[in-house]
């Protein structure tokens, strides 16, 4: 039951983009180890992520 609730909670967070930064950090750790620049801060990342979400058709009739 607890496991299930945890799973639902994770899905909700992922759907809403609440955990987007954590995912980005994981992606960064997996793919950009060699980079000199540190990963973006949460505020910077969120700015870029949110602006990126809104170019193109995102909502329908």
């Amino acid at each position: 039951m607890v496991l299930r609730l945890k799973r639902v909670w994770r899905a909700v967070r992922q759907l809403s983009g609440d955990d987007a930064y954590e995912r980005y950090l994981r992606h960064y750790a997996n793919h950009h180890q060699g980079n000199k620049e540190p990963p973006l801060t949460k505020a910077e990342f969120f700015k870029r992520w949110q602006d990126g979400l809104w170019d193109g058709v995102k909502r329908c009739c």
């Binding site: 809403s16 609440d18 505020a43 700015k47």
Partner: peptide
């Protein structure tokens, strides 16, 4: 709220 007060806290803001 989600841009400046608590950046990225999407669920709280929602």
């Amino acid at each position: 709220y989600m841009r400046h007060l608590r950046p990225g806290q999407v669920l709280e803001a929602t």
